[in-house]
Design a protein around this nucleic acid. Structure first.
Lengths: 238, 238
DNA sequence: TAGTGGTCTAGACCACTAT
DNA sequence: TAGTGGTCTAGACCACTAG
């Protein structure tokens, strides 16, 4: 394990546990060098991860100030799947696999994913229930050349966990798009909607591996009243 | 100017101009060291910025692969304001200041921003028009202790530009939240909505300075059909 | 003035990819 | 095997903050 990653995780835990409470200062870089017995650059790499994740703000001549992340509750930002999200938020849940089959890549899917037309892909539709109501509908398309097997049992749990821990895939990055669109019949049939619900939030994402291969295209469809997206962003000076 | 920042901007331009087209490799770190006449760490800092911004993917033993950012058009992610967004997307626009006045911080606003109750703040409401229709309504609250003057002319343009270039403030980071909520009368009166429009997207954000002072709280209210959020995210290995 | 973080360098060793 | 990126070190100088 990398030193700087370990130090990052250690400091992150201490910030979460309020050992370093909001508004307080972390130990200085020199102190951290002593504490962890590493060089300055290694400490600085760890601090940079904390900074980019929104845990701290650094100030020259002063130190690293711990930020209060709970203004909007948990900024669970970045690349996170439904499963991880609800675990972090302790939402009771239930997932039902509505459809799971192999399909041939259509021209439309090709346009989005760049997978060869007529090559094999998995199509997976899952209903996400909270308090018995289907509030999220996940439609996933997976490259069958990369994921040869997709047991229904795994689909019920976390796909990412299955890919990373059992298939040894290295998920690296994703492009996402959030829009609001009218509901159609297909969606209405699979979700718990009232007649008044005319729109849904659609989160589309293309997910890539370490080697830049796109292996997943997803449409995560949310009922308006259950949708919430929280993010932390640093200003990009132009 | 920092060396690594200059190198980042230079490489970014070359990627945008397709001098380094998608799927191609950047020059190796050793070559870049020669080209820019700097040390390896400096090159690596620049490459890291490119990586975090979603421009490249690095692969051990191979090189830095240029990614195709245009799958979902422009991932203008992070901390960007309406003004910058539309410039980047060449959207013709018009901004109308509907309200601009000093107010005393209410307990409710205090709870969100942590500004002292009864201290002074600016309240600014702006209507953003596209093709003559008000599709975005921006409600901003600004700490008057930090921003003493707020000329209406500046409000019509970009607030961020005014703060950074004229007031010398260093905007650093923001927390954002995106939800969908029912429209109320106040909003309906100020936007171009049909009777069918029952909901709007609300992007709430708290914006902070370099020294961790919160100076702005905003609610950006979007008509459903005009809302779109694009993002790039790297997997955070847990 | 002492201590802090910000930048940069030069060099080392490792793991991975090509061939 | 040669070349690539990944990690880590030790040391230097600078800019900023505080007492």
């Amino acid at each position: 394990m990398n030193k700087f990653r370990e130090i990052f995780l250690d400091l992150e835990q201490k910030i979460i546990n309020k050992e370093y409470p909001p508004q307080s200062l972390l130990p200085s870089e020199n102190q951290l060098i002593q504490m962890y017995g590493v060089s300055r650059e290694t400490i600085r790499k760890a601090l940079n991860l904390l900074k980019n994740a929104g845990y701290i703000q650094k100030k020259q001549g002063k130190g690293s100030i711990v930020l209060d992340m709970n203004r909007f509750d948990f900024p669970i930002s970045g690349l996170t799947s439904f499963k991880e999200l609800q675990n972090a938020q302790h939402i009771p849940n239930e997932t039902h696999v509505a459809e799971l089959k192999k399909i041939a890549v259509s021209p439309k899917l090709h346009q989005i994913t760049d997978w060869p037309v007529a090559s094999e892909a998995w199509k997976l539709i899952r209903q996400r229930k909270i308090d018995g109501e289907v509030v999220i509908l996940d439609r996933d398309y997976l490259n069958a050349g990369i994921i040869p097997l997709l047991p229904e049992k795994k689909a019920q749990d976390s796909l990412f966990q299955y890919f990373e821990n059992e298939l040894g895939l290295e998920i690296s990055y994703a492009q996402k798009e959030i829009t609001v669109e009218p509901v159609n019949k297909e969606i209405r049939d699979l979700m718990t909607l009232t007649p008044e619900d005319q729109h849904v939030v659609i989160v589309r994402s293309l997910v890539y591996l370490e080697d830049t291969r796109c292996f997943q295209y997803s449409e995560s469809i949310h009922r308006l009243d259950k949708f919430r997206f929280v993010d932390f962003a640093r200003r990009r000076r132009v």
